[in-house]
Write a protein that binds this DNA or RNA. Structure first.
Lengths: 126, 126
DNA sequence: AAACATCGATTACAAGTGTAATCTTAAATG
DNA sequence: CATTTAAGATTACACTTGTAATCGATGTTT
């Protein structure tokens, strides 16, 4: 039972369901309408594909369906992060962080959060 | 001039060229043979596609071609990292690092490197 | 009740991808 | 020199993805 691939377009739909769950197809359509130019039919297709892939489920509510995710965002991102970092950085996050550090995409707040993370890690692993 | 998409299979080929450059098709085939089950023809196809996409170039060496990357690994990974983190973590690396921290994929060495990175960052941005 | 709107299901269709096989041509070998 | 080999070019083909349109059934409206 290998994790199904979730395409980019599918991800955007799934992401709505992670935010607002359960949601009808038209809820999703409405939510996405603010930042995507997708036709309603397109979104319905994506919902169907996610259902077929076993990524989301639904309950019949009269005539509409109410959809909900079957996987947690954290689990998904954890897996994706691991495979991404595995592929591009041999599994090490530090080069990734280093890239962000030099690329100027790191703020003082980010750095403080990182420090807190490290402090926590050290407390736990000692 | 939008960056061409590089598929997963293509990436593995490109990655060989980042390691060993320039290289003939059979060099790439040999290098990949250790960890991939790909047919020689498949790899040739991938090389051609990378050429067509403008990701790699080549020089005719008699009858064979010598291929070489046209983009730097660092540039590619930087772009990918940014879009990945943008997509999954709203552009913040800290949640990614946090995931690694709790997921146990973080070693003492990693933490030390992170600390060094932070120290360096603080020195630079002050 | 008849017409219409709307749901999900099914079908569409081009581009990209994984994974090669075949073709053409030129080099190597007998 | 004739033939076999091997390099890249071209073609193949099923599956996925983006992006919908159409279909059949069921609610809704007049």
């Amino acid at each position: 039972m290998s994790k199904p691939d979730i395409s980019n377009a599918e991800f955007d739909v799934l992401d709505v369901l992670w935010e607002r769950n359960p949601a009808s197809a038209s809820d999703v359509v409405q939510t996405l309408s603010s930042h995507k130019e997708w036709h309603e039919k397109t979104i319905k297709t994506l919902l169907s594909r996610l259902v077929k892939k076993g990524v989301i489920g639904f309950e019949k509510q009269q005539r509409q369906y109410l959809y909900y995710p079957l996987i947690a965002r954290e689990d998904y991102t954890a897996q994706e992060a691991e495979s991404f970092v595995g592929k591009l950085f041999k599994g090490k996050i530090t080069p990734l962080v280093a890239g962000f550090a030099t690329q100027k995409t790191l703020s003082k707040d980010d750095v403080n959060e990182l420090k807190a993370l490290i402090a926590q890690w050290e407390e736990d692993n000692d």
